[in-house]
Design a protein around this nucleic acid. Structure first.
Lengths: 223, 223
DNA sequence: TGACTTTAGTCGCAGATGGTGACTAATTCG
DNA sequence: CGAATTAGTCACCATCTGCGACTAAAGTCA
């Protein structure tokens, strides 16, 4: 067992890998290194010369075998809360992963946010912060798009926004707002999903071609 | 001179203290500890047992003799950029200070953001991140109010928003949006400022009494 | 004193945006 | 074929926004 004080001044990088699974958000956990009975976020000690982003990317790669479609730091966590590493501070990242293409390595498991196993207090704080950060950036950054595959139907996109916002949206208003924000462009493909009319596939329209004025705000709710 | 590798794994806490001075944002700098010719943000090594927020608060107190009216972490910075401490990582905070009541301790000087002296690359990144964070939280958190004294005129508030947004706002629209957001309440005081009609003083209305629906969005611009 | 300037604060129109239900379209199922 | 299901659009109307023009209360200066 490590001596607690030996880690004073050192720190870890932790990654909250988020995906949308069966209509709810889920994060990727693995067995804790120190206590095999407990679950933990993927984390690492930093090595001299590696930037924080690099360490986070390695963490994600070890868990998934690929890079998240979006990876962003959400801050440093400490404040006396316990962490498997016994360091005083950890720097947390959020990584977004489209669920369709993700296949975690052995030993890693998706857990729905609503039903997480016990985590160290510091990692629990990170998981909560991750969803807060995602919600707050929803209208500034392509959060919803990074949780979807490269092409998607507008209904899928709407469901993703409903999931992230935690409320229902009205179809016509959603599409109108989407249009005026120039966020997507149609492909020439259509997808027939069992019953019902086939849906056209769209892709995220990168900033280059876009003439965006106001940030998008999907505010409109349903009865 | 310290050996660079001796600090590997350790880190500092740095504070970007921001105020609004003569219609532009300014930050508080001091002479660097290692090189008296250079300027630096206030920073400290952490001590075992102190939370990050506590260290940041101490930093601010040492510079100002008082607490900022708002103090929030903006992230961990490293990525190989140099810092006076020779650590690999620093955790940065923004602190907001109303300029009217602030009187920095000896050795600390306000510098306008538009005309900063040379800083270490890591601290320059922090200063830039600070203004980005302030802008992005402008409609979620009382950023503008924390840069103003406890009571203020609506014209002063509008000027503060114009400064933070970097664009002019239309008076009538600004006040209408302010009303519908229930952000301020009038006091029974008025201030006569030289020529022109005296202005009523307002104060920030804390969340308790507020029934806020949508986030405020002062989007409307001037010709 | 009274015209002029300066700053505060309000009104109300016209056009843009948003919430909504009802509509049409294309497919599967039985 | 008709019912069910999902996609996509339309049009009405209420609300919100941009904006110019207005009123109000002070100082300045001849």
């Amino acid at each position: 067992m490590r001596d607690r004080s030996s880690r004073t001044g050192s720190f870890t990088v932790d990654v909250v890998l988020v995906t949308a699974m069966r209509n709810e958000l889920a994060i990727l956990l693995t067995r804790s290194g120190s206590d095999r009975e407990r679950w933990s976020l993927p984390w690492r000690f930093t090595q001299a010369g590696d930037s924080l982003d690099t360490v986070a990317a390695k963490c994600a790669d070890e868990a998934l075998g690929e890079q998240p479609s979006w990876l962003e730091q959400i801050g440093a966590f400490g404040d006396g809360r316990r962490h498997p590493s016994d360091t005083e501070v950890s720097v947390a990242f959020v990584g977004l992963v489209p669920h369709e293409t993700a296949s975690p390595h052995a030993g890693y498991t998706w857990f729905p946010m609503s039903d997480l196993p016990p985590l160290s207090p510091r990692q629990r704080a990170m998981a909560e912060a991750a969803t807060r950060v995602m919600q707050s950036r929803l209208d500034q950054a392509p959060i919803a798009f990074r949780l979807l595959p490269a092409t998607f139907t507008l209904s899928e996109l709407q469901q993703m926004y409903e999931l992230l916002l935690g409320k229902r949206l009205h179809k016509a208003s959603f599409r109108r707002a989407l249009q005026s924000a120039w966020l997507v462009e149609p492909t020439d493909e259509w997808r027939s999903e069992g019953r019902g009319r086939p849906a056209q596939l769209f892709r995220y329209l990168p900033k280059k071609k876009r003439r965006l004025h106001r940030g998008v705000r999907f505010d409109f709710l349903y009865p």
